[in-house]
């Protein structure tokens, strides 16, 4: 079998067709102006909003966490109710590393990534047992709850309900001290998030990423084409877990504290909400959703301090009832209208 069975001279395709095919395939990986604008704005926020660095760090971490969830929901079609497990594990590993091993932040980050990725690799096969959404929900939730219980019981290691005390982080790269105002913290979170975003973007626009989209679209056909569905899903699950672990580690390193709360159910539910706010399946959804979530949270908390979750639930309810695809299409529709009116 050669790879050029069809490339017989008399059937050679016109170069035009090939060029058009190439354009279509490169469409997704091409960098759009809006993307450059987005990251420029992110960089500008570092210089222009110095008194908001703490909040901005939180947003970057939440955004990275939601981005990791987008990889499995938006690209692999696996709904998870327990993504907080990886976030929490990453947070604890980073904290424990700083206490028992080294206070150097990048080592903690790497170990957290490794641990979370490994947990993803180990628990991922459970998701493939029965490809029903309910089973996947419950397995992910179950793993997260087991981890929460474990952290709660192993108080000698994790501090239990009191949280992990005594986390100290050395200056970043030996030069940038983590300050009270979160300047270093935000710079650190922003750079890490940006780097991981670039990697994730590269992955989803690769042939592997294309195969994930195909599996999500029609697993039956993907199988009949010889695509090994299980291993492909497992790989993205582990990769997503790894990124979630890094997000957790960032939280530990920038707040110098870990509480059981990192593993609580609401983490997993919140991040789902964040992703849905921003839109599923285009990587920016998590980041944009994190900004929207934090702004809404601020606003609702100002309205009714204790009951902001009610309003958040209402927003989510409306989004689902109106239809996510319709809301996702809204900016484009507005733009379209704008252009038409401009022409008229």
């Amino acid at each position: 079998m050669t790879d050029t069975t069809f490339a017989t001279p008399d059937r050679a395709a016109p170069a035009g067709t090939e060029r058009r095919a190439g354009r279509d395939l490169l469409r997704r990986s091409r960098c759009k102006p809006a993307e450059i604008l987005f990251w420029l704005a992110a960089a500008a926020s570092f210089f222009l909003l110095p008194d908001r660095h703490l909040l901005l760090s939180e947003i970057a971490i939440l955004g990275l966490f939601a981005l990791s969830l987008d990889l499995i929901i938006g690209y692999a079609g696996v709904v998870s109710l327990g993504h907080g497990a990886f976030f929490g594990l990453g947070a604890y590993v980073a904290g424990l590393t700083s206490i028992h091993l080294t206070a150097e932040p990048l080592t903690g980050l790497a170990l957290a990534a490794l641990a979370a990725g490994l947990l993803g690799l180990l628990t991922g096969p459970l998701l493939l047992l029965r490809a029903s959404d309910l089973t996947r929900l419950m397995v992910t939730l179950g793993v997260a709850m087991l981890l929460l219980e474990a952290a709660n019981r192993a108080a000698w290691l994790t501090g239990g309900a009191d949280g992990l005390q005594g986390v100290m982080i050395d200056p970043l790269l030996g030069r940038f001290e983590f300050d009270l105002f979160g300047r270093t913290a935000y710079g650190y979170c922003l750079v890490v998030t940006f780097a991981l975003f670039l990697i994730a973007r590269r992955v989803v626009t690769s042939p592997y990423g294309l195969s994930l989209r195909a599996i999500r679209d029609n697993a039956l056909r993907a199988r009949s084409m010889g695509i090994p569905v299980g291993p492909r899903l497992l790989a993205i699950y582990a990769f997503s877990a790894l990124i979630a672990g890094i997000a957790g580690a960032l939280l530990t390193q920038t707040t110098m504290f870990v509480s059981l709360d990192v593993l609580a159910f609401h983490r997993s539910a919140d991040v789902l909400l964040v992703l849905v706010l921003g839109g599923v399946g285009y990587l920016y959804g998590g980041l944009i959703g994190a900004i929207a979530f934090k702004l809404l949270q601020d606003w609702f908390s100002a309205l009714t301090p204790q009951y902001w979750m009610f309003w958040m639930g209402l927003v989510l309810l409306v989004i689902v009832l109106v239809g996510r695809d319709r809301i996702d299409a809204l900016p484009r529709a507005i733009l379209h209208r704008f252009r038409r009116e401009g022409r008229a």
Partner: peptide
């Protein structure tokens, strides 16, 4: 090449040629 996670889709001319075909 289906598991290749680093190459950008649409950068291999032999594949493009066959798609066009």
């Amino acid at each position: 090449g289906g598991a290749d996670f680093w190459r950008r889709v649409g950068t291999r001319s032999d594949i493009l040629n066959e798609i066009a075909e």
